[in-house]
Design a protein around this nucleic acid. Structure first.
Lengths: 196, 196
DNA sequence: ACCTGAACACCGTTCAAGT
DNA sequence: ACCTGAACACCGTTCAAGT
């Protein structure tokens, strides 16, 4: 990549992060180009789609999460591995407003720049869930896609100002619904375990 | 209301229903006016905000639901009343794509034309939940707003093409998480009760 | 190779001018 | 009273012209 191109790319990424943090995943791309002092065509050259830009902004987060999940496959109990994955995924997904819908849409679409991130997330969750299944601590009528749907739904709740205050609590409620067995009514009835 | 105004109002409502059904709550209002053969200003005169139009489209549904919920306060068991409210609310909220976000936003905003519908929904749910609480069949760390958040999140799932296939199942999972006590692991572990 | 910005086809919202 | 559509300020996306 040529030096001037590199500079533009980096600036677009930095400005993109600011703008998306402030206005969410649906932020104006024109605004990004403007604030980066770059022609609109230059933005489209580096990031042909909105997904491409958001993928670049999320990649490090997704990578961190998947390596952490891999570590926990050996270092944590099945229960901790699963609940950690759940909480980390929710945290990642509400990094920017609107990410939940974006990732969810990218799941179906192999052409989307975000598809790989989706699959990585989905698969890490599936592995944590299956480990929990064989340990007998998670309900067996839930699969990896259900789990993905639940974290997406929770992430969406964080984006809604009127509901966000209850979102932390509901993460606990839903964790409890996924876990089962010895956890029993302790998990489903008591206060949500204050982890984090 | 003058006869010509009435005609325009009715046409806008009918066309609005079609367009919103097809394109969701974020549908182009310009498109509605165009297809209704009405000036853009006429649309804004009858429906000063997007919420006003959607409120008109949803009012009958909300009214039906709240009267049904009131009926069930005496005619149904606390459990049936609660699960029925939950399923009916989800059904209503995914009447059109994007309604969940709209209702959720209107919750906070007393100025929104949808605020009354929100409150009606919220309150009907709260009553069903409190009845379940006194009957000892619902977890007590969940309040009416939590319940509202859960149905909004589920409604949102129905709007996501990649997750919609699992949404029915997850309604069952979450119903089970809200209910507690004698239902115990039967609800939380078994297949979701195939109601509907 | 890479950058630029005008051009095109859309929005939502307002409001002067008409009947 | 009510209706109309031009006007304004925004979008996303493409692409001919420049360096």
């Amino acid at each position: 990549m040529r030096a001037d191109a590199r500079k533009n790319y980096d600036r677009l990424l930095a400005v993109g992060r600011e703008v998306v943090t402030e206005h969410g995943a649906e932020a104006s791309l024109r605004d990004v180009a403007r604030k980066a002092d770059v022609g609109l065509g230059t933005l489209y050259r580096h990031f042909p789609t909105r997904e491409a830009l958001l993928e670049a902004l999320l990649r490090t987060n997704v990578d961190e999460l998947t390596t952490q999940a891999a570590d926990r496959e050996t270092s944590s109990t099945p229960e901790d591995a699963l609940t950690s994955w759940l909480r980390d995924s929710v945290a990642l997904t509400h990094e920017y407003r609107g990410v939940a819908a974006l990732l969810t849409a990218a799941m179906d679409d192999p052409e989307s720049a975000l598809n790989a991130s989706c699959v990585a997330l989905h698969d890490a969750g599936t592995r944590a869930l299956e480990r929990a299944h064989t340990a007998g601590i998670a309900r067996t009528d839930i699969d990896g896609t259900d789990l993905f749907a639940l974290i997406a739904a929770l992430a969406w709740l964080y984006d809604q100002p009127s509901l966000a205050p209850r979102a932390d609590h509901l993460v606990g409620v839903i964790s409890g619904a996924v876990l089962t067995g010895q956890a029993g009514s302790g998990v489903s009835q008591g206060r949500p375990r204050a982890r984090r």
